[in-house]
Write a protein that binds this DNA or RNA. Structure first.
Length: 855
DNA sequence: AGCACGCCGACT
DNA sequence: GTCGGCGTGCTC
């Protein structure tokens, strides 16, 4: 009779494999999700049990299996999170171990540390060595790393430590156990009293004071705190500890970023909800109470008060003793939201984000997964933190592309949270002023929408609607520039209309925000004699001149170098610096409005001096700045309240990107920027400058008509066979050797089209470049595959073509775009099969479901 | 990721 | 003849 077999995901980057082990009865009953120690090669490794019902016949390997060594208490994956992983694996088709590893606690990559742990009161009659070891463990708070204990034990022979440890563990009050740790938890030493023989007279007054305090508040204060309370120095306290008149005991000290700052715990004044807010809350509260697992799309244009609705729903969930997950698209937006929420919600909050230290992340993970924290706030990674009592999830700015992971395993946090809510029956609210086209579509789908729509229609903080002007850059006067200033303004797209409005705004002592979605000074360095354009050899992209550091830079790979003095092709000088980026707009504004205070905010200025960048924002808020010029950074979230004029210098920068989402992204950016101007009692003005004044993204953002924009966009998407009518699967081959990359992608294409998929007609155009959508030459609709087989039913595969970024970081790239029916899972096993069958030395294959970008 | 095994230069 | 360089390849 052989013991049971189980499949384990090992905590090592093992390619894409699950390993099988025997479960000896000694390891106790194992359940899926349990954390275990397993042998791997010659070492020991942590892992997670995935299935325990494997039969020998299912295994593809012969020979004896190794056995699980032991179970690790704590650190397991909860059954509902394991189900979530399986659902994500089925949906994206990407590697299961990669997905699971997102849901496990933050663990150090290699080691499983064994901890000496006190289980009971220390036994009596120990040998001196064992008693010393017991004392060490006691001082460390009852738990200690074996290796650290060995060091602290002293330079005695190793056998002395071993036998002392042996003595302790055989006394059953101690055990050596594996634990999952990313870092050693921060310990703080607390002081407590010793039973003193009464009437001791050899103590000073301050020493007595310290001892009295320690007696009254045992294990509550550290050395410095106790000294402070007794109004004496830390030396007094330390000497008491040294004389063993005070005891020291370490215990866990939580690190949470919120403890550090003193956000006032004052309650915000009660707000009277607008009628539409009240209506939304009226729908959400019963859903939270009854745990209906419904999905809601909260459409609230800027300044319509979405946050108030979130808070009302969250309060209800917290009142009922449930946990709340609140997602924000990026770290920068976390802080203001938390500050606001802490004024209305007085419950323990945890925060996770990618810039935390490992210790902070581990602590916040633990506080969330034990239920100590009731509200978890964070960006994408927050979706993976276990919340055992979740009763509500909120995704703010739900249209934001930041929720989708752009590396393997390419999960979309929104999808993860949807599934989490479906499993736990917690309602889900996703909110935005500019929901994604797919999200609108799902809220209106015929035959039972996945999302119920809640609209906010009033603007409690706004005096009037911003007045928006569209400037057609193609219709500016064609006459030659009269002055140098005129020429500078034209080069920087400062139209007369915009100049006039800036002047008016400055005269009223109000601030302007100008958005230019391109960094640097000039995006093209052109030889006027031969037409040569300076490009990056690794990416074939035009180099951008940055005046800030007088270098040219590739915006693809970030390479920098000095600009050539003369044309490398024909030696002509000087070269022309064509087009404009943020730096050139700054220069033009300084020339045109010499008395205005002008500043720039983009990735470059942010990277160069972070603190200065934050000061720039403060300056704007406090009226110390007149014109702020920046990239999308300044539209997204950054609270530019005291601004009455906002302008987009050249909307075409985003609109002309070769991506089916370009129009939508532009619409969202413009709508956001327009919504920012004119709050706090000042009527707002906005200017949109463009060469495409009739584009729906321009016209409808100016009218703040998100629903009508979506209607027009849906038509283009339908014609172009893009989401939400098809699911996109992108397969990229990449190599420094172009023919080899091409050969691999061609083989993959043959493989995919020889399967029971439909293939497109020959000679089809590159739909990545032909993003206009309405002239696509794909078959009108997917037809079911003739022979079933469960793989890739209804998939449409387009022939391989060079990526838009045909060369990137020195590697040539080709791609296949495949289309699946909307809401169809990626065909099981297809991606693995492609990668394993066609992987070749020197050629990388990337398979990306639902790609964020098609570049 | 580790840690093997493995096949070619400077040392006893 | 050995020690060791880090190039592929496997880990149940």
């Amino acid at each position: 009779l052989s013991s049971a077999l189980c499949q384990v995901v090992v905590n090592a980057p093992l390619g894409r494999k699950l390993l099988a082990y025997e479960c000896p009865p000694a390891s106790g009953p194992l359940r899926p999700g349990d954390a275990v120690v397993v042998p791997l090669g010659s070492r020991e490794c942590a892992g997670w049990v995935i299935r325990t019902d494997i039969s020998v016949s299912e295994l593809e390997i012969a020979g004896p299996l190794k056995s699980i060594i032991e179970k690790i208490e704590g650190g397991g994956v909860r059954p509902e999170d394991l189900r979530l992983c399986e659902a994500m694996h089925a949906w994206y088709g990407t590697n299961f171990p990669d997905i699971l590893s997102l849901f496990v606690p933050p663990v150090a990559p290699k080691l499983v540390r064994r901890i000496v742990q006190v289980l009971d009161a220390p036994p009596t009659g120990l040998s001196p060595a064992a008693a010393q070891l017991a004392e060490l463990v006691q001082q460390a708070g009852g738990k200690m790393d074996v290796r650290r204990a060995k060091t602290a034990f002293g330079a005695k022979p190793a056998s002395a430590f071993q036998s002392a440890l042996q003595e302790l563990t055989s006394a059953a009050a101690y055990a050596v156990r594996p634990e999952l740790l990313s870092t050693t938890p921060r310990q703080k030493k607390f002081l407590g009293p010793v039973q003193l023989p009464s009437g001791r007279t050899d103590l000073s007054a301050s020493e007595k004071m310290v001892l009295t305090l320690a007696d009254q508040h045992p294990w509550q204060y550290g050395v410095a705190e106790l000294a402070g309370l007794a109004q004496t120095s830390t030396h007094v306290v330390r000497s008491l500890v040294a004389r063993r008149l005070l005891l020291e005991r370490a215990s866990r000290k939580w690190r949470t970023p919120l403890e550090r700052d003193d956000v006032a715990q004052v309650s915000a004044p009660e707000v009277v909800p607008t009628p539409s807010q009240a209506r939304a809350i009226g729908e959400l509260v019963p859903a939270v109470r009854d745990q209906t697992g419904e999905f809601f799309l909260l459409y609230g244009p800027t300044a319509s008060g979405k946050t108030h609705v979130y808070e009302a729903a969250a309060k209800e969930a917290l009142r009922l003793g449930r946990q709340v997950l609140l997602m924000v698209p990026e770290i920068a937006l976390t802080r203001p939201l938390i500050e606001r929420i802490r004024r209305t919600i007085h419950e323990p909050v945890a925060v996770v984000h990618s810039r935390q230290t490992p210790a902070e992340r581990r602590d916040e993970w633990e506080r969330s997964s034990t239920g100590e924290a009731r509200l978890l706030v964070g960006p994408r990674s927050a979706a993976f933190v276990p919340l055992p009592e979740i009763g509500l999830a909120i995704i703010d700015e739900c249209h934001d592309a930041g929720y989708k992971q752009s590396e393997s395993p390419y999960l979309d946090a929104r999808r993860v949270v949807e599934e989490k809510c479906a499993i736990t029956r917690a309602p889900l609210i996703v909110g935005s002023a500019t929901p994604a086209v797919e999200q609108w579509h799902e809220a209106e789908a015929a035959g039972g929408p996945r999302y119920r729509r809640l609209d906010l229609t009033e603007f409690p903080t706004r005096v009037s609607r911003p007045v928006v002007s569209i400037v057609d850059l193609g219709k500016l006067p064609a006459s030659k520039p009269q002055t140098d200033l005129d020429r500078v303004c034209r080069q920087s797209f400062l139209s007369p209309v915009l100049q006039g409005l800036i002047e008016e705004t400055l005269a009223r002592r109000q601030a302007c925000v100008l958005l230019m979605n391109r960094r640097g000074f000039a995006p093209q360095i052109l030889c006027p004699a031969c037409g040569h354009t300076e490009t990056c050899g690794d990416c074939l992209m035009a180099m951008v001149y940055h005046a800030q550091d007088r270098q040219i830079s590739c915006h693809g790979c970030g390479a920098r170098r000095n600009p050539p003095a003369a044309c490398p092709a024909c030696a002509y000088a000087p070269l022309g610096y064509m087009g404009a980026g943020t730096e050139r707009i700054v220069e033009a504004c300084r020339a045109r409005f010499p008395s205005a205070r002008v500043a720039r905010l983009d990735q470059d200025s942010f990277r160069k001096n972070r603190r200065r960048a934050f000061e720039t924002l403060e300056d704007l808020k406090n009226g110390r700045l007149d014109i702020l010029i920046g990239t999308q950074m300044i539209a997204k979230g950054l609270d530019v309240e005291h601004v009455s004029l906002s302008a987009v210098i050249l909307a075409d920068v985003g609109l002309n990107m070769p991506d089916y989402r370009a129009r939508e992204k532009t619409f969202q950016l413009l709508a956001q920027l327009i919504g920012r101007s004119g709050r706090h009692g000042i009527p707002g003005r906005a200017v949109l400058q463009t060469f495409q004044p009739a584009s729906p993204a321009i016209v409808l953002s100016a009218q703040e008509e998100a629903p009508r924009f979506v209607e027009s966009e849906l038509e283009s998407r339908k014609a172009g066979h893009w989401p939400p009518f098809f699911r996109i699967l992108r397969i990229v081959s990449q190599s420094s050797n172009a023919p080899r990359a091409l050969q691999v992608i061609r083989k993959i294409y043959e493989h995919m089209t020889s399967m029971d998929f439909l293939s497109p007609r020959r000679g089809e155009r590159n739909e990545v470049r032909g993003v206009d959508g309405d002239d696509e030459s794909l078959p009108p609709s997917p037809q079911p595959s003739p022979a079933g087989g469960g793989r890739g039913e209804g998939m449409i595969v387009s022939p391989p073509l060079p990526c838009v970024r045909a060369k990137w970081k020195g590697e040539y790239r080709f791609q296949i775009i495949a289309r699946l029916p909307w809401q169809a899972p990626v065909p099981h096993g297809l991606l693995d099969e492609i990668v394993s069958r066609y992987r070749t030395a020197g050629v990388k294959i990337m398979t990306e479901p639902d790609p964020v970008s098609l570049l």
